[in-house]
Design a binder for these strands. Sequence first.
DNA 1: TCACTTTTGCAACGCTCGTTGTATGTTACC
DNA 2: GGTAACATACAACGAGCGTTGCAAAAGTGA
Lengths: 230, 230
Amino acid sequence: MTGTGSGPRDRTRTAQPRRGRADKATAIVQAACQVFGRDGYSRAGIDAIAAQAGVSTRTIYNHFPGGKAELFRSVMRWSSERVRDEQLAQLRRYLDLERPPHPADLERDLLALARAWVGLMTDFRDHFALVRHIYAEAGHIPADVLDAWQETGPRAVGGEVTSTMAALDELGLIDVHGDPAQATVHFMALISAEITQRSYWGVSPLPQEEADRLTAAGVRVFLRAYGSAG
Amino acid sequence: MTGTGSGPRDRTRTAQPRRGRADKATAIVQAACQVFGRDGYSRAGIDAIAAQAGVSTRTIYNHFPGGKAELFRSVMRWSSERVRDEQLAQLRRYLDLERPPHPADLERDLLALARAWVGLMTDFRDHFALVRHIYAEAGHIPADVLDAWQETGPRAVGGEVTSTMAALDELGLIDVHGDPAQATVHFMALISAEITQRSYWGVSPLPQEEADRLTAAGVRVFLRAYGSAG
DNA sequence: TCACTTTTGCAACGCTCGTTGTATGTTACC
DNA sequence: GGTAACATACAACGAGCGTTGCAAAAGTGA
C-alpha cells in the first residue's frame, strides 16, 4: 500500500493548527518527559513522542540532531531543574531561615513542607516516573551524564535541606546528633516511604487525606527521633 | 561469514560440554535474572540470556513456550521467592519471638537483622536491580502478575515484620504508637535509605564499614522514635 | 546397540524502530 | 508581497530482535 506511486500530489489536507516555532523545542521536551517517564528509554518511541508533542518526527531530529540519546539528556536536565526549583521554592517558603519558626510551630512548618513535597510527586508524576527509570537503567547512562544530573538535581536539593537542618540544630529547634546530612536523608525517607510503597511508587495514587495522614505520621516520627528534646 | 552457503555440512566442531538436561531450566532463569536485572525487559535480549546461561536460544523456547514474557514472569517469581525466604530466615534468626530479647539486647538484635538485610542487597544484587525495573515498568506489567508478585514477595515479608513489631510492642520493648505496619515501613526505610542513596541504588556499592555505620545510624534513629521510652 | 528425548546450529520471517533525504507546504520577518 | 527559516509528509534504508521450523548431533536409558 505504501508504494501506490501517487507521489506528493494529494497534499490537499488543510494544515493542522500550526503554532509558533521556537516553543516546539519545549513542547518536544515536555512530551518526551511524559513518554520516557511512562515507557522508559528503550520502549519509548520517537513516533510516540512526536505524536504527543503534536509535531512531526522529522522536527524532533531538526531540534535534536543527536537523536533519541540527546533528547533524553535534555529531558533529564529540563525536568530535574524544574522540579528542583519547585522543591527549593517550597523549602524556602515553609522554612525561611531569615525568620526561624517558633518551637511550637516547628512541626507545623515541617509538615507543611512535607505535604508540599509530597504534592509535587503527583504534580510532577512524569518526572518521578522518569527518575525511577533513571535509577533502574543507571548502568546504561554515561557516568558523566548521571553525575551532572545528580549534581543539579537531587544533590542540590539535599544540600539545601542539609543546611536548613544544620541551622535548625544551631537554633536548638532540633538535634541532628552531629550529622545534618543524615537527618536530611531520614526526613525525606520518612515522609515519603509509606506513600511511595502504598501507591505502588506512584502508579496508583492515594486519596489526598490518606497521603496527608501518612505524611503527618512521618513528620511526627522524625520529630520523635530528631526533636531537640529527644 | 554466516552466509557462506556451506549449509549444515561442516558440523565438525566438537560438541560443547553437554551437561544434564533438567537443570537447564533453572540455569536459564538464573541467567535471565542477571540480564533482566542489568538491562531491563526491553533491552534484555534472548540471545544475551542464552549466552549467559550457556544454552542455545532454541532451548529457551523449548522450556518457556511463552517466550520472553513467560520467562520474565518466571524470573519474577523465582527471584522474589528466593529473596523472601532468605529475608524471613534472617528475621527469625535475629528476632525469634519464642525467645524475645532482653531490653538491653534489643538494639543489638535489630542491628543484626538490619545488617543481615542490607547484606542481602549485595548478595542478591540482580534481584534488587530487577525490582527497580519492575517498579519503573509497573505500567507495562499485567496487574495480576504485579499483584501476585507483591503478595508473595514484599507483602509477605512486610506482614511478618509487622507481626514482629506488634509482638515487640506487646512485650513493651518498643512503642509502635498503634500502627505496627507503619513502624515496619519506617524501620525498613531508615535502615536502607541512606545506603541506597549513597550507593546510587546499589550501582556503586559502599565499603562494608560505611554501610555498617549507616545501618547502625538508621537503627538508632528508629529506636529514638519507636523505643518504649520515646 | 537402539529408540527416544533433549539440545543445538542455522536460516529465515516479520516486525519494530531509529534515522535520513527530499520535496512540498507554512510561517515569520522585512 | 517576497524571501528565508522552519515544519511536514512520505518513503526508504538498515539494524536489531523475537520467534519458529528443521535437520543434525548429543545425550539418556533399556
